[in-house]
Design a binder for these strands. Structure first.
Lengths: 214, 214
DNA sequence: GTCTATATAGGGATAGAC
DNA sequence: GTCTATCCCTATATAGAC
């Protein structure tokens, strides 16, 4: 493994664990047992490091969103898509911790990150519209379903669920993180599902939970 | 107005606008047209300043939660309570921006803030239970209502709605902030309400929006 | 109470030897 | 590619005059 890649891997690990703002170039160099000067040889500074990690993240997520649009609209496929997106977010979760200050500090990333969130939002809206048209979701009363607000709420879960859990219970492994996020989304959509679909999603979730048991 | 109070007022304003981490003692002194040395005479540093502001915030919120428990359980009263809590959160919104790092930086506040969130969560759960018992909320299918997850979602809105909006649309005045948050919470609970209650809440909201029109 | 001046510390960044 | 040494800048905090 090239040193440059090594630096990226270790930085991602440290950023996720302690937060980007709490780490100096020296800290990262220490963890790698190299000198700070050496680190600066590979990356001009933390800025370039973060930019590179963001590029990785964006590339991956955009591919996932693309895949979701291309994929069919069955409940199963949409369900699976939720898992992989959440896994990816977990992998780069430091971007979702103190996001405001992070983007303020690195304006180069700011616009890209906001555009990505917008894409994700539109992708969720499209998915909900599809599920609605196919009758998977249905209003249970005289009122229309508020797709936009439901999509907002799902974005809220995507974006802040991890930080929220840390704020309340401290630390959370990938499995617990995804488990909780999925349960939130299920609770959000359950009232619009018939008994059959709801049972199906519960089973999907139970299956996933069993597979991932530590 | 005493200088000490003046410092608190101006600090709160700046913290809300630019974020606590982005302001130095010198910045605050400049805004007040006093010298940094003078600021340090009144407060040992930013830490003491933030601690004092947090004390104000906690005192206010605890009083509101207490009031909610004492008040009746009609939908109107609970509705009004939402507004005042959200107004208070908006007033001290810098605590809800980059919260993780803020609490890490000031351990003295950390425990208190977490306890406060827990109280708020329990207060919401109690409210939902009451509304359920009185038949204001009711499940529309064979499944029980997931109170805990709904309460989690409401907490998510309380805690991150403002930061989320800033992340997507930049800037938001108090009115727009509360309007959006309320709409989210309404969307969350609407499926469990009958047509009558839902119309009532819509009217409450319309009334509030008109009153607060700029 | 308020000011000016200054000491101190930490992180970011580069130069130059190896 | 990698290291050591060093410089610069910024923020915190204090000392002492007014």
């Amino acid at each position: 493994m090239k040193r440059r890649d090594m630096i990226l891997v270790v930085s991602l690990k440290l950023f996720n664990e302690e937060g980007e703002a709490n780490l100096t170039a020296v800290d990262i160099a220490n963890e790698l047992d190299i000198s700070p000067g050496n680190l600066y040889y590979h990356f001009k500074g933390k800025e370039e490091l973060v930019a590179e990690l963001y590029k990785q993240f964006e590339t991956g997520i955009v591919a996932l969103l693309q895949g979701a649009n291309d994929a069919g609209d069955t409940l199963e496929e949409q369900w699976l898509h939720l898992y992989v997106v959440l896994e990816y977010i977990y992998l780069y979760r430091f971007f979702f911790r103190n996001t405001t200050d992070l983007l303020q500090k690195y304006p180069a990333i700011d616009g890209h990150f906001r555009r990505l969130l917008e894409q994700q939002y539109q992708s969720i809206r499209a998915m909900l519209h599809n599920l609605l048209e196919e009758g998977v979701l249905a209003s249970n009363c005289s009122e229309e379903i508020r797709i936009d607000e439901l999509a907002d709420n799902m974005m809220l879960i995507y974006t802040y669920w991890f930080e929220f859990q840390n704020l309340r219970k401290r630390q959370l492994n990938q499995h617990k993180f995804i488990q909780g996020a999925i349960l939130q989304i299920m609770t959000l959509l359950a009232p619009y599902m018939g008994d059959m679909q709801r049972q199906f999603t519960e089973e999907c979730n139970a299956l996933y939970q069993r597979d991932k048991q530590d």
